[in-house]
């Protein structure tokens, strides 16, 4: 029996700009992430990974200069136009981890105040004492040695790794169903990155959190993900299980990506020697990775 995926994106198009100066950024992206699944989205810089994530969070509001069409289903609602429905679920049913944790925390408030606000997005009437108790518990869960002290610090007083954990603790504090991580910790050192991934993997396993990982790092993707989407210039080009993809990439762009990195590397996306018209070929979906089943 199949359940409806936590997040389903269908035929997502996005254009920025007004009138004659429109630039199309996404040309029909489709993807889905199920409960407990770890899915990766890879692609070169500017291919549209972050805008996809931000659209899924409802963070790119429809405006005169932002036009999104298609469908983003999450938690029984349609989120492609942003709006209050998805806004209510942010920090609560869906959470996000950002690339640079230190700049993602407000420099003029202590962690404590920010953490309280996060918790109150799910429970507005939470008392200070109860909020602090939960914050300390959440920080302890991500192995922060002295949670009370961390709460009384400003982000700039903590190390990058600490901030990363604080941000993850905040993201997880309200037990979201879906966690989106946009290149988590690439601003940090490798050990912190590894810890972050381990934490997210545990979450998927123990709580059934759906995880969408955006990454530059093919080594990381290979270690972490169950399935992989490859995006090229706003188009999905290949969709496969991690095993299938790394064993037998079928799309010319993916093949170029994988062949350009040395075999055992864990490094970032390679610079491809040149763009090939081949790269524009249509989406290739491997066996067993088809469209998600509709709810029965």
């Amino acid at each position: 029996m199949t359940r409806e995926p936590v997040l389903t994106i269908r035929d997502l198009h996005l254009a920025f700009g007004r009138w004659g100066r429109k630039s199309n950024v996404l040309h029909g992206i489709s993807l889905h992430v199920g409960a407990g699944e770890k899915v990766a989205l890879v692609g070169e810089s500017g291919s549209g990974k972050s805008v996809t994530a931000r659209l899924a969070m409802g963070l790119l509001q429809e405006s005169r200069a932002t036009h999104a069409t298609g469908s983003i289903r999450f938690d029984g609602i349609e989120a492609v136009k942003g709006g209050p429905e998805i806004a209510r679920r942010r920090g609560n049913r869906v959470a996000m981890i950002f690339q640079d944790p230190t700049s993602a925390l407000n420099p003029t408030f202590k962690i404590r105040g920010q953490f309280r606000e996060v918790l109150r997005s799910a429970e507005p009437r939470l008392s200070d004492a109860e909020a602090d108790r939960r914050a300390e518990a959440a920080l302890a869960e991500v192995s922060i040695p002295d949670p009370a002290r961390a709460l009384d610090s400003y982000a700039f007083q903590l190390s990058g790794g600490m901030n990363q954990r604080v941000m993850i603790a905040m993201a997880l504090a309200n037990r979201p169903e879906l966690l989106i991580a946009d290149e988590p910790g690439t601003a940090l050192d490798v050990t912190v990155q590894a810890q972050t991934l381990k934490l997210m993997g545990d979450l998927a396993a123990t709580r059934g959190t759906a995880v969408l990982l955006i990454s530059h790092n093919l080594g990381v993707v290979r270690e972490f993900a169950d399935r992989v989407y490859v995006i090229y210039r706003g188009r999905m080009v290949e969709h496969a299980t991690t095993k299938q993809l790394f064993a037998a990439p079928r799309h010319p762009y993916t093949q170029a990506l994988l062949s350009a990195i040395p075999k055992i590397s864990g490094g970032g996306l390679p610079d491809l020697p040149e763009r090939s018209p081949d790269f524009e070929r249509p989406l290739i979906v491997h066996e067993g990775c088809g469209e998600p089943a509709e709810v029965v």
């Binding site: 925390l105 407000n106 920010q114 997005s121």
Partner: peptide
């Protein structure tokens, strides 16, 4: 700034952002 997008992503209400979390900095 990233921390304001993060505040939205973490469910801070827009009014709280306008009067507190973006206002102080």
């Amino acid at each position: 700034k990233p921390y304001v997008e993060m505040a939205s992503a973490y469910g801070f209400r827009p009014w709280r952002i306008a009067t507190r979390y973006a206002f102080r900095p």
